[in-house]
Amino acid sequence: MTNETKMTARHVDVFYGDKKAIDDVSIDIDNGIVTAFIGPSGCGKSTFLRSLNRMNDTIPIARVTGEIKLDGDDIYASGMDPVALRARVGMVFQKPNPFPKSIYENIAYGPRIHGIAQGKADMDAIVEKALTRAGLWQEVKDRLTDAGTALSGGQQQRLCIARAIAVSPEVILMDEPCSALDPIATARIEELIEDLKNRYAIVIVTHSMQQAARVSQRTAFFHLGNLVEYGDTEQVFQNPQETRTKDYITGRYG
């Protein structure tokens, strides 16, 4: 996959009630690479992430203005079905949230509601492929009927990634996917992100600057609802253009 632009945001504001959480953010998200959103707590990076697949719609008081496009189509246009959008823009959450079902059913859930699989054999193949890509197949292939919630935290998070992959999304949004995991499980997820990045456009929100530096090719630094700086990860970390970015990266606040 080439580094073409997958999503574009132009002059995006997000409001919670009267409070402006995101102020005039414009950004391009490219295919085939990992884009990291970093910034101190409360800077709006997760809020912005959730507006990329319209998950903010589930919060009654949230309101998004501006323009966000996926492959050139405005995702907030009246003709756009948020349900169809979310099948194309998958999401992995902060805390692993497997459904209270078997491992198999966790993966089969998405393909089933979208009618992707043709029969049982096809579904089995989809489940195996998704689990393999998520690096979980070897660990769970003999216990697909066990409850998804019985896995360890790191395995649960990989199950959630496999679940997102199973509906063949084009973009995967990850909202601090490692914040509830131990260092070893975190390392596994980071390897997984590395393996997946060629197939999807991946956006990861993270608190850890080291993680952003390790996994991403592009980094966006948010502060108080503003996009302060956006560029190649190497450049942002080694040679930030803005003093606020520099102060944050060198640990002066955050």
């Binding site: 998950m55 589930t58 349900v83 194309r88 459904f99 998405g110 509601i113 959630c160 679940r163």
Partner: peptide, 15 residues
Amino acid sequence: VPRAMSDGSLAMGAT
């Protein structure tokens, strides 16, 4: 039922 659970399903494109 944790909100994360229904969010997970909505984020998969379920209605």
